[in-house]
Each structure stands twice: as structure tokens, then as C-alpha cells.
Design a protein around this nucleic acid. Structure first.
Lengths: 121, 121
DNA sequence: CAACTAAGATTACACTTGTAATCATTTATA
DNA sequence: TATAAATGATTACAAGTGTAATCTTAGTTG
């Protein structure tokens, strides 16, 4: 539903909403090589898809997400896992055992997460 | 590069290659509601993209993948993680701590994987 | 041998996506 | 006040995708 390009816009809105087009544009002009018009197109598509909304501020819009990042991430994760790894989280994680070299810190984080998972049982 | 629909075809080829179109079709007619022509289109697109190949067997083709599943999974994983979770595996995994209820077995698998990760350090 | 089938190849067509440019309108400015 | 500038809206256009149908050709069958 959210395309890859649109997602980059969403990340900004998730971080700092409500947010003017100008702000989004200036952030994305740094981190990408999109033109202003391109970025505005993406905002508009997100609007039409009902994924974000806006309130007027003078003659400009202040945009805000209508779905939470976590909710979206959760759905995206489930889709990804079921599509690529037959739904098996461990199969996915073990991909990274093969030389993808996680940092010690990431591994520590992971262990913590696993422990939480156990406690929830 | 591999679309979602094409991926479903790939899964069959990864499991049982070389594989005739007829076999792929009959498997997918069960698990999806695609028509035969649709499935053949997908095979053809994969061929044109250079993702699979074939050898002739009489007048039919026997298809085989040209990339390994693991290689593809690895790439897809990296893309997914960096796009949706800023590259952080633990952020992804912790999604599942929130009520996505993994089976005890999955958690056990995960722990094993983590242990391996540690040993690789 | 003529007609039918079945395989792959080619064509179809609407929708999405990437990537903008132009249009219309409103506000700021000379 | 006429014009320039900036906003969002609309339009553009090629490539990729989902989802098939038609075409071509070579075997199969009556």
C-alpha cells in the first residue's frame, strides 16, 4: 500500500508531525536527490490514499500520518516474513548468522528481546 | 527485481527444480486462484529477467532457478530491514514481542540462532 | 492427412510507481 | 496595483505488475 518512495516521506512525518511540505522537502533534498515536485507528488499520493491527513496553516498544509509507525511495521513484517520466510522468524534471523556480522551491541539487544519474549509466555 | 507474484513461482522452483510448467501450474492452481495463462506469464517473465533458465524435454521446458533462495532471501532481508527498521534487526524482532505470540518452539529456535551469532564473534 | 491440442511466445490492458513539469490560485513585493 | 513567487492540484509519461487472452507452431489423434 505504501510504496518505497512514499515510505521515505512517512518516516519524516512519523518523526515530526504535523509537518509542512517545505520541511519534508528540505529534509528529503538532503537525504535523496529528489526534486521538490517529486516530493510533493508523494505527499499528495499519500493524501489520496488516506494514509496521511493535513490541517491548514495559512495557505500551506501541515501533514500528519493517519497510521502509526508501529502498526505499519507490524503489518509489513508479517507480510515480509510470510512471503519470504514462510512465516518463520528464526529462519529470517539466522540469515544474519552467515557473515552479515551484527554488532555486539545488536546481539545484546537481540538477547534482551528474546528474554522478553520468553517472559511473555 | 522479483515481484510478489513471481516470488510464488520461485518458491516452487526452489523446492523442486527442474520443473515443468505443468507442475508449477498445478501446484499454484491449488494454492492460488490464478489461471494457467497467468502462471505461464510469470514463468516467462522470470525467464526474460534472467532469474530462471530451462532445458528442453521434448516440446516442453523444465525450469530451474538461476539464483539460490538463500542469496535472494539475504538480499531481501537487508532491504526490508534497512527500509522499514532502519537496519536494526532487534527492532524488527521486538515487533513480535507485542502479542504476535510466537510458539515456544520458535522462541527456542531463536535462542539457538542467537547463541550461534555470539559464537561467531 | 486433416483437425485438434498443448507448449511456449506475443499481445493486452488497467493500475501502480518513479520522477517530474505545468496549471491555477493566492499572497507578497516592487 | 501589476507582477513575481510559492502552494497545492493536475497532468505526464515510461517502466513494472497483476492478470489474462490470443497467436504460432509442432506434435497427437481420428
Amino acid at each position: 500500500m505504501i510504496s518505497e518512495s512514499e515510505f521515505k516521506v512517512m518516516r519524516i512525518l512519523w518523526q515530526q508531525a504535523p509537518c509542512s511540505a517545505k520541511t519534508v522537502v528540505s529534509e528529503l533534498e538532503d537525504s535523496s536527490d529528489w526534486k521538490e515536485k517529486t516530493i510533493k507528488t508523494l505527499l499528495n499520493r499519500l493524501l489520496n490514499k488516506g494514509i496521511i491527513t493535513y490541517e491548514k496553516n495559512g495557505r500551506e498544509y501541515l501533514y500528519s500520518p493517519l497510521i502509526e509507525q508501529e502498526q505499519y511495521q507490524k503489518e509489513a513484517s508479517k507480510n515480509f516474513l510470510s512471503q519470504v520466510f514462510d512465516g518463520k522468524l528464526s529462519a529470517f534471523v539466522s540469515q544474519f548468522a552467515k557473515k552479515e556480522t551484527l554488532s555486539t551491541d545488536e546481539i545484546k539487544q537481540l538477547k534482551k528481546v528474546i528474554k522478553e519474549l520468553e517472559n511473555d509466555q
